[in-house]
């Protein structure tokens, strides 16, 4: 059974990459290289090191932006979740941000902060922060009341309830909010490299497009998607490992 799932995954990958290869050979479009050509381009970029240089550049705004979002987002989320007043005051902003296409702010950010790192960090932040804030605050709000009462009945002080009950109880949901935030951060980082100034992976994509080196372009896109998916999977594995069994055990079953 274990094997079946694995075989099917491999089969599924073979089917998709095979279809890609065939479509590239027909070719469906002059701008559609085969899978093997793209992988060859990826291997070439890996061996000459250019892909690593590019990622060093791309990861800069991503890492800085996600770090800021995590720090501020969790802080804001806790604050909003704990205080009805701040909930009333700040929640609507993040709810609107979550629903709105914030990419529209990019022209303004560029005007205000130029085309450098600051703007890119901003793009990553506005993309990733709302979901982190909203999941943190709703996790805090949904801490089981009986656990808080239990701590109170054993004379816990307010800070102890926060540190020993609310934060541990909210962590799984905060963590999955973080995962969504990172995913949105990747979208923002690539968007800013394509829209603001071509640097890093965005530069490989834009440049190879302009010289019609399509295998390199597809290779770069392929690599960033793989990187994002691997990283998010890693986060998910960490999450499952850290919080296994956590969402069971409150309930009375």
């Amino acid at each position: 059974m274990q094997n079946r799932a694995l075989y099917l995954k491999v089969l599924s990958a073979l089917l998709v990459f095979g279809a890609w290869e065939i479509a590239g050979r027909i070719p469906v479009s002059y701008a559609f290289p085969t899978f093997l050509e793209s992988m060859a381009a990826l291997a070439r970029m890996t061996f000459d090191g250019s892909i690593f240089v590019a990622y060093a550049e791309t990861l800069k705004p991503l890492v800085v932006g996600v770090a800021i979002s995590t720090f501020l987002g969790i802080g804001f989320g806790l604050w909003i979740g704990l205080s009805a007043r701040f909930d009333w005051l700040f929640s609507p902003i993040f709810i609107v941000m979550q629903a709105a296409p914030l990419a529209a702010l990019i022209p303004l950010l560029v005007m205000a902060y130029g085309i450098g790192l600051t703007s890119k960090v901003f793009v990553v932040c506005i993309m990733s922060m709302p979901v982190i804030v909203l999941s943190t605050s709703s996790a805090v709000r949904n801490t089981p009341a009986s656990m808080k009462e239990m701590a109170k009945s054993f004379l816990a002080k307010d800070y102890e309830i926060l540190l020993k009950i609310i934060i541990p109880a909210a962590s799984p949901m905060i963590f999955s909010g973080l995962r969504l935030g990172v995913s949105a951060g990747f979208i923002g980082a690539i968007l800013s490299e394509l829209k603001i100034t071509p640097t890093g992976v965005g530069d490989i994509i834009s440049y190879s497009r302009s010289i019609a080196d399509y295998p390199s372009m597809y290779a770069a896109i392929f690599s960033i998607i793989v990187l994002a998916v691997l990283f998010l999977n890693l986060l998910e594995k960490t999450e499952n490992y850290l919080f296994k069994g956590n969402d069971r055990g409150y309930v009375t079953d």
């Binding site: 980082a189 968007l191 998010l232």
Partner: peptide
């Protein structure tokens, strides 16, 4: 089992990176 891995990839992948492909 054939499709789920792909759906899971694309639901969280940075889709902005695919936009240049669509353009060409």
């Amino acid at each position: 089992e054939l499709l789920l891995p792909w759906v899971n990839i694309f639901v969280s992948a940075p889709l902005t990176a695919l936009v240049p492909v669509l353009m060409v």
